[in-house]
Design a protein around this nucleic acid. Structure first.
Length: 1128
RNA sequence: GCCGGAGUGGCGGAAUGGCAGACGCGGCGGAUUCAAAAUCCGCUUCCCGAAAGGGAGUGUGGGUUCAAGUCCCUCCUCCGGCACCA
């Protein structure tokens, strides 16, 4: 590195001597590794738990957590230390402020890359993962982060995943009681142990409803709701089925993309046109039975509890959108039996297995506009219609087409379905009755309706929904306008609009009010007379109430509007009208609400639905249950076995962990049907209930069973690691009660600062909240929310270079030309910014580049792929490229390796640079060139306290009062900024202090002994102030000042106190504005009142001439800031 | 399309509605050096001017205010997320 002094290459005795004590990368490296070893040896950052020796319970707690990394083979990325440095600064600061600080680190170590590496090489994932962990640990330690390494663990540790499996069993053995009050806000909804459900069933408190739902017996009378059965009356199979349906962990069927050739399940974006992205093998959509978590049960709680969290508003919004709660109605449309075409519900039930087709809508007020129904291809009604068609051939006309459509739709992934907005569908050949209008309307099946949302069926209101509109247009289905905008045109106009609405021939209807004279209309007619085709394209109708309705076909709307005087009202007929307005065409036999505003109309419909039994108010969530199974190897095994009938049984908690078996090879199984990789471990899979550890009360020990061969997803281990850090070595519980209560409970419950990227806004952060909620409901933890305060560090991006045609140039083919003396420019290689010796004669450069250099700008250029240095001397065919910001990527060759930067500058400089780049939460481009500024700052700071000649502390005998005052201000500013996580400005304040303190040149006493500008005491406070940011240098200064021997590590000292009086000045400078423009600045006494300042300033010799001869209208005084004189 | 976030010197960025550009990079000039590197000092928003000084200026256009980078409305650009959710 040319920008860094290198002591080993420095020549001459004197300079060698000098360089020994000058702050350089080499010295920084020595200092850093030395203190890192000392901190480890002295256990400086070990934080005892309550009850352990050395624990000081009078201190407040501060739990400061990083999102733990996935230890990839590539090592740390520059993005990792950004968040980690931030939390390290806060942790160190909080320790100095007197807190017990829990600041742990660990490894999110199950995951795909290690498994894929194993597939290629046969090396066990544990081996590669352990290696990566060792490398990550080494790298993190090299940064000097103050983690309590005694708490380190990985999600792959048996001691850890044992408890992950234990939590799974807790979830498995829990149900969601919709009526039990939650302990957070008393509103209904809480997870409870299954045992309590069974007890309730046995006692008769709970009954089993006709549809398999949970029913509460009606109070003291014990009256049994109709259709409900008592627990005692159920068969053992029914009991098991009922309980399994109530569990928070249940087996559900969901569709996966299975690639037989790759033997693996693919994510939606790995499938392109039905082929795998890798290899182009065919991909099948297969139903797969998988473990699901009933996370939707807690949806309302997860939404409400967002209010308890000090999180970025954008993250809360993302979670809230993800949960996607919407209010509306469930409406039951009576089905017509296709055989009898009668509205007899019994007949419908007999033929179609259901009396009604139930839909969810957020716009119940548009029910009169529902002119057809649509069900999703997966909707059970489709199967029943097809079955009916088979029983009675000819009854369902298009049975073959329906079957064909459904089969095709099922094999299209959700992504594909959503890509083509073109609407497809087929009529089911059955009808149901619109309960409001009494009209029979057809039922269609179409893949624009999703089975996973609402009821998987909709009432289609083409006039007021864009998707329904497009569908109705495509299949020529009727539309009815039932909401109109306010106040425009009489009823007759809206009748006309209603007649023509959606008719593709017409573009718009124009209402011309009676205030326009018939002459205007005649004039328009005359104009149109001369326009070819106008005869059939424009239809003018006088309205009975006065005024006119003009229906216009394209493209004549503009002509019509242009020839009419304002105001006229134009209504587009060719698009859906999803907006609110006033109900129209909404009168039926039992209900009607014409003229009501949309919100009132909704209420009216809801009331009618409730009264008539055609539906009810309902809320629905976009959130889906969490698919918790993966068909992978490198994850936690489930503590579950199956008997020969396919019933599942839990492994007893005492038999955990269920260890992951070692495989001989990790090649996926090629198979038509989805096969988890663990199925290969035959001897592990096939076992007995006793060996597996199933409770003998559930299953006899010699019963043959098969183990669950799916594994848990990566997010399993990361959903509760914050809890485990409180007490990571506990053998008996997932966490010790006392430790958990101390770190996660109390006045400030949960993690006090959690820092990580915002890509986890909905995934990890929602799952972890749900686990915590369940564990809280079940009484295992003290707070329902794991992360009270959350912060996202911004992405560290990089520069990339773009040609005029927007193609990107790899960074190592780009050079930076900087202006230099005498018509030359200097050439710097990217990405390092290293200068080449050669200089280019600027006249040889293309004119445009020359011009920019002449303006003092530096220019980025590429010379083409094979550029070599020699060519710079001749005429240069350089092409200017534009610097843009992009993500770091291997192909752009702009990835920065933290190890290199530490080698070139040291860890302290690295830490400082990343914190100085800009606000922590913003994404910001890495610029290696800028690092040197922070290194220079550390050199100056070092020189302030240490003699470069002798290496001894350099202290002044007496404190300079100005510097003392500035030091107090700096301490105050830095402390305040750390609290705000505003590290860039804190560092700026430190730089300012060091720069100013460094200006006073080191004095020399008579005996040529140099003395410093700061006293020993001032230097010690400066070291304390630097300690959170650059702990190694601070420790070294502390040591050289002789304080470490006396007082111990700088990391264990109290933050320096400040004297409030030192923050005040006797005199302050205020700006003097004349009508808002700054004219001059004057000094006024700091304690002067507004009136005093005003008279002082107005009579000030510099101000008085400015206002002489003018009349002063007003004077605004802002003490300490400015005086604004408004004068003319 | 919808929902976020952001637009300030050559660059990263600073600024409780109150002196725009702190601090750093780069650039220019100087000191030191046989020389270079490193280091140190000074200047550095743009335009006009030798200077003193003057003018303009926080993506665009408008508004509120004694005072707007900051608050309100319009539009433009970039980045991120979601996207047939009835």
């Amino acid at each position: 590195m040319p920008t860094t002094p290198n002591p080993s290459s420095a020549a001459g005795g004197r300079s060698e001597n000098l360089s020994l004590h000058r702050y350089s990368a080499a010295l920084a490296g020595q200092i850093e590794t030395h203190w890192q070893a000392a901190w480890l040896e002295e256990d400086t950052f070990r934080q005892p738990n309550p009850g352990e020796p050395g624990f000081e319970d009078w201190r407040p707690k501060f739990y400061c957590l990083d999102m733990f990394p996935y230890p990839s083979g590539a090592g740390l990325h520059v993005g990792h230390p950004e968040g980690y440095t931030a939390t390290d600064i806060v942790s160190r600061f909080k320790r100095m402020k007197g807190c017990n600080v829990l600041h742990p680190m660990g490894w999110d170590a199950f995951g795909l890359p290690a498994e894929q590496y194993a597939i290629q090489t046969g090396v066990h994932p544990a081996e590669t993962t352990r290696k990566s962990i060792d490398n990550f640990r080494r790298q993190l330690r090299r940064f000097g982060f103050s983690y309590d390494w005694s708490r380190e663990f990985g999600t792959i540790d048996e001691d850890y995943y044992r408890w992950t499996q234990w939590v799974f069993l807790e979830i498995y053995n829990a149900w969601f009681d919709e009526q039990a009050p939650s302990k957070t806000d008393g509103k209904p909804g809480r997870a409870r142990p299954i045992a309590e459900l069974v007890a309730g069933l046995e006692s008769g408190e709970f009954l089993v409803g006709s549809m398999g739902s949970l029913v509460r017996s009606a109070g003291a009378t014990g009256a049994k709701p109709s259709g409900a059965r008592r627990w005692q009356d159920l068969s053992p199979e029914d009991r098991r089925g009922f309980i399994d349906n109530q569990r928070l962990a249940y087996v559900g069927e969901s569709t996966v993309n299975w690639c037989p050739a790759l033997g693996t399940v693919l994510a939606n974006d790995e499938v392109i046109d039905g082929k795998s992205e890798r290899g182009g093998h065919p991909v099948l959509r297969k139903p797969l039975r998988q473990w699901m978590f009933r996370i939707t049960a807690h949806a309302d709680r997860l939404l409400r509890q967002l209010d308890m969290l000090a999180w970025p508003a954008s993250t809360k919004k993302k979670q809230s959108d993800w949960i996607g709660r919407s209010e509306g109605a469930e409406i039951r449309f009576p089905l017509l039996d296709p055989r009898t075409k009668s509205a007899d519900p019994a007949k419908a039930a007999e033929g179609l297995g259901a009396q009604t087709l139930d839909v969810f809508t957020t716009r119940p007020d548009t029910i009169f506009g529902a002119t057809y129904m649509v069900v999703a291809p997966e909707h059970p009604l489709v199967e029943r219609v097809l079955a009916l068609g088979e029983r009675q051939p000819g009854l369902i006309k298009d049975a073959a087409r329906i079957a064909d459509y459904v089969a095709k739709a099922r094999n299209r992934s959700d992504v594909e379905r959503q890509e083509s907005k073109e609407k497809t569908g087929v009529p089911l050949g059955i009808r149901c009755v619109n309960p409001a209008s009494g009209e029979p309307i057809p039922v269609w099946v179409a893949d624009y309706v999703l089975m996973g949302y609402g009821t998987g069926a909709i009432m289609a209101v083409p006039a007021h929904d864009e998707r329904d509109f497009a569908f109705a247009r495509a299949f020529n289905l009727p539309m009815r306008l039932v909401v109109r905008p306010a106040g425009e045109g009489p009823a007759q106009f809206w009748e006309k609009v209603g007649e023509r609405f959606g008719n593709p021939d017409y573009y718009s209807a124009v209402y011309v009010p009676p205030m326009h004279s018939p002459i205007a209309i005649d004039g328009l007619s005359n104009v149109l007379h001369g326009v070819p085709g106008a005869e059939s394209a424009v239809e003018i109708t006088p309205l009975d109430e006065g005024g006119w309705c003009i229906l216009v076909k394209p493209p004549l709307e503009d002509v019509v509007i242009a020839h009419l005087p304002a105001p006229v009202y134009q209504f587009e007929l060719g698009a859906a009208r999803p907006d609110s307005g006033y109900a129209c065409n909404s009168i039926g036999a039992g209900v009607g609400f014409d003229g009501m505003e949309t919100p009132q109309a909704k209420e009216a419909v809801l009331a009618w639905l409730d009264k008539s039994g055609h539906g009810r108010k309902r809320t629905t969530c976009r959130l889906r249950d969490w698919t918790f199974s993966r068909q992978r190897y490198w994850g936690e095994p489930f503590p579950i076995v199956y008997d020969n009938d396919g019933n599942h049984y839990p492994v007893a908690a005492t038999h955990l962990p269920v260890k992951l078996p070692v495989l001989d090879d990790y090649k996926p199984v090629e198979s038509q049907d989805p096969q988890p990789l663990l199925a290969k471990a035959a001897s592990w899979v096939e076992t007995t209930a006793g060996q597996a550890g199933v409770d003998p009360a559930l299953l006899a020990p010699d019963t043959p069973v098969r183990r669950e061969t799916n594994t848990m997803p990566g997010s399993a281990g990361s959903s509760w690691y914050a809890i485990r850090y409180c007490d990571p070595k506990n053998k008996d519980r997932l966490v010790g009660k006392q430790a958990e209560a101390y770190w996660m409970g109390g006045e400030n419950p949960g993690v006090d600062l959690y820092v990580g990227g915002d890509e986890h806004s909905v995934g990890h952060l929602l799952y972890a909240r749900w686990w915590q909620n369940v564990l809280y409901d079940l009484g295992h933890v003290s707070t329902p929310e794991p992360f009270r305060t959350l912060f996202h560090q911004g992405l560290i991006t990089a520069h990339a270079y773009q040609r005029e045609d927007k193609t990107l140039v790899p960074t190592d083919e780009v050079y930076e030309l900087r202006p230099a003396n005498g018509g030359f420019c200097s050439v710097h290689m990217l990405p390092s910014g290293e200068p080449l010796k050669q200089q280019i004669d600027t006249p040889n450069l293309p004119e445009a580049i020359h011009a920019r250099l002449a303006r003092g700008e530096s220019v980025f250029v590429t010379f083409g792929k094979d550029a070599d240095v020699e060519r710079f001397f001749g005429p240069v065919p350089a092409e200017a490229v534009t610097q843009i910001v992009a993500k770091m990527s291997k192909s752009l060759k702009n990835v920065v390796n933290p190890d290199d930067i530490i080698a070139d500058y040291g860890a302290d400089t690295f830490r400082l640079y990343e914190m100085y780049m800009g606000p922590l939460e913003m994404s910001k481009p890495w610029n290696t060139r800028d690092i040197v500024g922070l290194h220079r700052f550390l050199q100056r700071a070092w020189r302030l306290g240490v003699s470069e000649q002798t290496g001894e502390a350099l202290t002044a005998p007496e404190a300079d009062p100005t510097l003392e005052k500035l030091l107090h201000r700096t301490i105050n500013k830095v402390g305040g900024d750390i609290d705000k996580l505003s590290f860039n400005t804190a560092i700026a304040a430190l730089i300012e202090f060091v720069n100013i303190a460094g200006k006073g040149e080191a004095q020399t006493k008579g005996d040529s002994q140099p003395i410093g500008t700061l006293t020993r005491d001032q230097l010690s406070r400066l070291a304390l102030c630097l300690a959170p940011f650059v702990p190694h240098m601070a420790e070294e200064l502390w040591h050289r000042l002789g304080l470490r021997d006396k007082m111990g590590s700088v990391c264990r000292q109290a933050w320096p106190s400040i004297d409030e009086a030192m923050l005040r000045d006797d005199e302050v400078e205020v700006a003097v504005q004349l009508s808002g423009k700054v004219k001059t600045r004057v000094k006024v006494p700091a304690d002067a009142g507004e009136d005093a300042i005003q008279s002082f300033v107005l009579s000030h010799p510099e101000v008085e001439p400015l206002v002489r001869g003018k009349s002063i209208k007003k004077v605004i005084v802002v003490p300490g800031r400015l005086v604004n004189i408004v004068a003319v």
